[in-house]
Simulated scan of single mutants.
Amino acid sequence: MLDLFLSAFVTLFVVIDPPGCAPIYAGLVSGATTRQASAMALRACLIAAAILLLFALFGEQLLGALHIELNSFRIAGGIMLFVIALDMVFEKRTQRREERAEKIKATPEVEDVSVFPMAMPMIAGPGSIATIMLLMGRAQGTEQTVVILAALAAVLVLTLVALIAAKPLMKLLGIQVEAVITRLLGVLLAALAAQYVIDGVKAVLG
């Protein structure tokens, strides 16, 4: 069970990418007070948790209603995660997040960034939704399901900590260190994505 927890934790951590969300959030809440920034961070993580929990528990039924096999979703999800990994390695993902953040900052009437863009699509985006569904699809029994949900909860708690500590964290790490971490996580995610595709193809051919 520890191996399952660590595997799920690493996968979700890489996809949600708390270190990558932190600098973007710091930019979005630059004009807010510390209390306001913390409240928005908590709200964003709670909303993202609700979205991911919904897809974790009922995503497979949704696929069934659409007549999509889980193996097909596993292959498609693996390919999508691989694309995200390439973006992370070449810093395209960070660039898009920064551009999205600039658009939000340029709109004066938008003050609360907890729902958009933080909760969705930055935390509970297509990649994380696909990942939690893939992990839940591989879970066997209630115990493994609880372990995966615990891994999700742990990653979201770390995300909350990263968002709250975003400004001091960026001062501590610096832009160069953050870029190196993002690229390393991208390589790891590429390997995990390839494994998802391999598992899906094996299941289809087997």
Rank of each mutant, 00 (worst) to 15 (best):
K105H: 08
E109M: 14
V29K: 11
V113N: 04
V180L: 14
G137R: 03
R183K: 13
L185V: 00
T182Y: 05
P126Q: 04
V83D: 07
A37M: 13
G20K: 02
M170D: 08
G137D: 07
S114M: 07
L52Q: 01
I51E: 03
G125T: 00
F13Y: 15
C21E: 01
L160D: 04
L4H: 05
V83R: 04
Q176C: 00
G64L: 11
N71S: 12
I104K: 03
A179Y: 03
I164P: 00
V110E: 10
G31H: 14
A50K: 12
A76G: 15
L66Y: 05
I24S: 07
P121A: 09
D112R: 06
V115S: 12
M118K: 01
V180T: 13
P23E: 02
A49D: 00
I132S: 01
R96E: 00
P23W: 02
G78K: 07
L192P: 03
A191P: 06
N71M: 11
E102P: 05
A44F: 09
A56I: 01
L188V: 12
C45N: 10
D17C: 02
Q36N: 10
L12F: 10
A49I: 02
I181V: 15
D112P: 09
A166F: 11
P168V: 14
A8W: 02
A139I: 04
